[in-house]
Design a binder for these strands. Sequence first.
DNA 1: TCTAATTTGTGCGTATGTATG
DNA 2: GCATACATACGCACAAATTAG
Lengths: 332, 332
Amino acid sequence: MSFVTIDTASKIPKYKQIISSIEEAIASEELRIGDQVPSLNSIKDQHSLSRDTVLLAFNDLRTRGIIQSVVGKGYYVASTNIQLNEKVFLLFDELNSFKEDLYYSFLDNLGDKIQVDIFFHHFNPDVFNQLIESNLGQYTYYVIMPANLQDVIMSIERLPQEKVFILDQTTPELSAFPSVYQNFSRNVYEGLKISLALIRKYKSITIVFSREKQPLGILKGLQEFCEESGISYSVENTFDDEKFEVGELYFLLDERSLIQVIKKIKEAGLVIGMEVGVISYNDSLLKEMVEGGITTISTDFSFMGKRLAEMILNKERLQIENPNQLVIRNSL
Amino acid sequence: MSFVTIDTASKIPKYKQIISSIEEAIASEELRIGDQVPSLNSIKDQHSLSRDTVLLAFNDLRTRGIIQSVVGKGYYVASTNIQLNEKVFLLFDELNSFKEDLYYSFLDNLGDKIQVDIFFHHFNPDVFNQLIESNLGQYTYYVIMPANLQDVIMSIERLPQEKVFILDQTTPELSAFPSVYQNFSRNVYEGLKISLALIRKYKSITIVFSREKQPLGILKGLQEFCEESGISYSVENTFDDEKFEVGELYFLLDERSLIQVIKKIKEAGLVIGMEVGVISYNDSLLKEMVEGGITTISTDFSFMGKRLAEMILNKERLQIENPNQLVIRNSL
DNA sequence: TCTAATTTGTGCGTATGTATG
DNA sequence: GCATACATACGCACAAATTAG
């Protein structure tokens, strides 16, 4: 039972590595109140350190009241009240308005003693890898939104496994990590299935979809639904005015194409929810108000942030499918 | 393993030779991420250079994010992305949807050789100071949104003056720094003045305003307008259902209170833009579509991001008032 | 607890060559 | 020709952190 691990090559000072090791042993209850901490000499011998380096760490822990020294005997755990300056590394794909709910719900539920730094990889694997590498060893937890990036498992595996949490999209390779994720294909499939009667009003479905940025599961769910119910569909990369047709149901993932389609519908003097239909992914406060309401399939981002915070605080290691909701409004 | 080669006879400056040497060692994978770079002193001794010459090279590499320094330990490779030219420290107040346009327009106009890291101070001066303190010397440029924080000039002055840019809100104390800012009081005053005829429909104006988070200039502009035109107004901290009145014009800064007011209007069966008026600060795509359109006073965030990027790239040091727009829609 | 070695961080002074007007 | 600014390079001193003995 050594508790202490030292990486000589690391840029983190050795005495700080000792401090973290002891703190983590206490946090994980390997060391309990009253337990004896390994002696100065045993640690120094095991890791070939100077006695003073170990002493530096122990003095820090002692002045914080976490351990007590007894002359001639050793050091003993005196308090488990380690408010270790916890920091969270939060790696998002891109900045958009849906991150707002998620982020603030995460922050609120974490409490104000934990600092959270946000980064964005913009679906660029180089940026992703670099951000992880240059922040190695600096954070207590790493919350990562891999989005649809491939080949990032290598980077993620460079992080301490027990500190990693996966958010929003996960993959079979990442199944070892705790996560709060959306089951995109099921959510879309079931959302559409519930609305089948309404969808039958339309000739076919057009989805505006970017393979680079958007979850493939959404496309999969739509395909599955369409094949099963015999409805034809087409996938477009961007919304194209030219191909706009009456009788079409538009499935729109981003705000820009949503606005474009609605404008087009109004320009053409058509009735939304009758002659042309609209379903949008991700709900927002304003979508309830637009044109009598836009039908949405959406996950609960506030819940996602809350559940993630709880998982971190309670040291749970679960894989949680985040609840999803279909809200049928006028546009369908 | 010296990595560094210096040709004294060459006309290439020595510090640039050091930079290239390190970059080449990284490119050839002699130096990998996390590896320690030879120390200042060892390089200076081996090549009979001044310590400052080596330091010049290392500081360049550091502000580009390629190496990191740890006092008392050494320099470590942090990124293999050696074509990185510069790094920008971007300090926002809070995450919200209006940051999206600003951020992506800034990014797009900067080009892809510059890395941008975002931080948020959440209107907390301690967080603000700590973020600046812990990122000193690591970035080529510091773009700061001080919002309405007082007493942050001390922190900002710790940064190299020529690297600092102020965004969105500025103050007389910050007048030495280049900036792209909103003239909140003038924008509000003039926006309201143009709409005076429409505003006369209403009994009085209620603004929902948080002194902690929102720019005082907005309140000032409203006051000025009201006093000049003899219209009464009241300031509320949050929207209160109880005080909802017919004949009132609501001036709403955040999306939440906007939604609340619109819901209340519809619940009461009133006509927006006739019996109750709404003006909202900051335009968004969806506000055009809500209830036939919400009247907005708003700055052009895309332009703000673009102008800021240009200022940095062209090394301009200007104070630029960002263009502002009143969009009159049905809600007034 | 003290001393020592090594490391980065910072400030100041000096000198030289080059470009600019 | 002269003054000025800037980039490059060197030297020195002291502070603070890390680690060893």
